[in-house]
Design a protein around this nucleic acid. Structure first.
Lengths: 187, 187
DNA sequence: TTCGCTTTTTGACTTTTATCAAAGAGCCTG
DNA sequence: CAGGCTCTTTGATAAAAGTCAAAAAGCGAA
């Protein structure tokens, strides 16, 4: 979905605002396996995924990769430590499919919120949703077994298994690839 | 710290706004082990902890208690699913020490944000901070060992060990009480 | 279709953590 | 300070998950 369409579903946008948005939104098409942001880099843009899939991950000192989460179409994504605090990113953002993004700069984003308080509502709404998801994630990691977490994911986002390799899913679940493979074979 | 003092440290408050706040803020003193919110209940107040410590936890079907997190003085706390979405809470909020709280109702909170856009800044700031903490928590649970998580907690919040029983800390770390005890004895 | 590469599975073994049970320590109260 | 709590530790054992290595399966390109 195009970002303007998405915004219109959540907010009543005047023709002027739409025009203003069109001026500041940059649209781009990225190939599969393209690294958008890597640790140490600054990221001053907020992206909206029109189509595609982005993996957010980091590497431990020993070189092991861990998937923090997947971002799919119709969602916003950015290197949040960097976008919000101006710090360098600690994570990678990498496409796992051909991906179409729309993005706006940090400055334009701030301006937009200032000029049109309407956007603040959506901003807060999105943060609430992100926090809800994070809380569920924490409790899942804290007290569910690997098998339970696997089954939740299968329930809530079955399509992810068609789109992402099991190695990436395993690290997202916080388990090794072999363990995930064994969980799957036990059914 | 009193909530007004806290707010003044973050925002320039006019005398009128302070007066307005004083009208809507309710201050209360709770004993140790008081349950503020329990699962199924609605919570329409936002609390600020002036003094004390609150544990947020839930119970699995099997009856096992898991600590989602601890909330300490100079922080806001509420049953977020309930305060934000109007759903019944899924968690307990329970004091682990004598606790002094200031709180405002959901309606007053909304009014305040609407009337004084200044507060929206703090609102967003607090949410950013919460999200930062949650992200760190997720990555810790995902790829650190129990020992590493224990050591991080010891680094970042050493005082918690003086204030909270090891059983609660163990469940916060996502491990059994016995495992925590063994980690501690190995040093 | 075949070669080469990546992903997934399987097996053997080790490490980590949970569980159950009981002992020990600490602490409040009468 | 004695008795009865709760909290913490310790021990033995079981379950869960990790690691390493190799085989199997899948897939894309020549």
């Amino acid at each position: 979905m195009h970002i303007i369409t998405f915004l219109q579903q959540h907010l009543p946008l005047s023709a002027e605002v739409v025009e203003e948005l069109q001026k500041i939104i940059v649209r781009e098409h990225l190939p599969k396996n393209h690294v958008l942001v890597r640790p140490g880099q600054h990221c001053r843009r907020l992206f909206f995924i029109e189509e595609g899939l982005i993996r957010e991950h980091y590497q431990s000192l020993s070189g092991k990769e861990t998937t923090y989460r997947f971002h799919t179409e119709d969602n916003f994504v950015t290197a949040d430590e960097s976008f919000i605090d101006g710090q360098p990113s600690q994570y990678y953002l990498e496409t796992l499919e051909e991906t179409t993004l729309c993005s706006i700069s940090h400055e334009d984003f701030e301006q937009l919120l200032k000029r049109h308080p309407l956007f603040e509502q959506l901003h807060v709404l999105v943060m609430h949703q992100v926090m809800r998801e994070m809380k569920e994630r924490i409790t899942a990691l804290q007290f569910q077994t690997a098998t339970e977490r696997y089954e939740s994911l299968l329930q809530n986002q079955p399509s992810i298994f068609q789109r992402v390799s099991l190695g990436h899913i395993a690290s997202y679940l916080g388990i090794s690839q072999e363990t995930l493979s064994r969980i799957r074979s036990k059914k």
